[in-house]
Amino acid sequence: MTRFATRFRVGAPAAVLRTAVLALGAQSALALAYLATTEAGVASPRTMAVPVVWVTAAVVGVCHAERPESAADVRAVAAVVGVAYGVGLAWVTGAVAPPAGAAGGLDVLLLPPWWGPLVRYDGASVSVFLFPYRAVGYAALAYLVSLAVRDVAASGRSAAVGGLVALGSCAGCALPLVAGVASVLGGAGVGVGAAVAGETYLFATVAYVLSVAVLTARPTIE
């Protein structure tokens, strides 16, 4: 009977933990600076934890993901795929959308750290509604997807297992995030409490961490 071994690309636990601690420290310093220089306030610990988890996961994933050796043309294709994935995810979640109506221009809202400064832009051809932590999260996923593409090119189809699972799991981020954006744009106000009502953002956060973990480890069936 044939046996299959699954290989995971994960760094040393101590190194991963050290990166996470440094990421938390940096976020704390940035949050204090933001609060000291703006009129933004704070939110409940649960609400504040959402962006902290996203950013920490993003930093750990980007720092510890294995970077396959690839030719220039493969890297170029992988970069295009990663950018397309990031833009597509932003579109699906409502962060980037068709214009809402009359062009309202640029608006910046000073929400609690990592929820703000929230950038809202409504132009003639596109609308943007982006929390800082989500911009970091999407960028990290786009980069990790590009690494997965390079992995597939180097190792064959078995390496795609991690990418497929991660893409599927992060698709679960879409509905909760769209619900949160819709509640704000629909007149529920810009308060973070309305944006994260219920369990939707908890679900999205779990889906995001799972996506980053799988794209970072990129399990390969051998």
Rank of each mutant, 00 (worst) to 15 (best):
Y34P: 09
T38G: 05
C170E: 15
V209S: 03
A160C: 10
G189C: 11
L144E: 00
D107G: 08
T37S: 14
R157H: 12
L106V: 08
A154N: 09
L141R: 01
A49G: 11
W54R: 02
P13D: 09
A72Y: 10
L109G: 02
R150L: 03
A31K: 01
L110M: 15
L141P: 01
G137R: 01
L89E: 06
A76M: 13
G61M: 06
A33F: 10
A5Y: 08
R46C: 05
A65H: 07
S70D: 10
V184A: 11
L202R: 08
G11M: 06
L17K: 03
A140C: 12
A76Q: 12
L185V: 11
S211H: 00
T200G: 07
A207Q: 04
V55K: 05
A179F: 03
L177S: 15
L210A: 15
G187I: 00
L130I: 14
A217R: 04
G104Q: 12
V212K: 02
T205I: 05
F4N: 09
E222I: 12
E66A: 14
G25A: 07
L17F: 13
L147S: 02
S169W: 12
T37D: 05
A23F: 12
G180D: 01
A166I: 07
S158Q: 09
S28P: 00
A160M: 11
Y143D: 01
G82N: 06
G88E: 05
P99V: 08
V181G: 01
D151Q: 09
A197D: 02
A79C: 13
V209N: 05
V92T: 07
E199V: 15
V206E: 08
L164I: 12
S183L: 12
V92A: 13
R134V: 07
Y208T: 03
P113Q: 10
A135W: 10
A213T: 12
G86M: 03
A171V: 14
V42D: 04
R134S: 03
G193Q: 10
A179I: 06
A213I: 01
A135K: 03
G116A: 06
A159D: 00
A188F: 00
S146M: 03
V152D: 06
A160L: 13
A90L: 13
A20V: 06
A23M: 11
R46P: 02
T93I: 07
Y85P: 00
V126S: 06
L130V: 15
A90V: 01
S169F: 13
L35V: 10
A174K: 02
A29L: 15
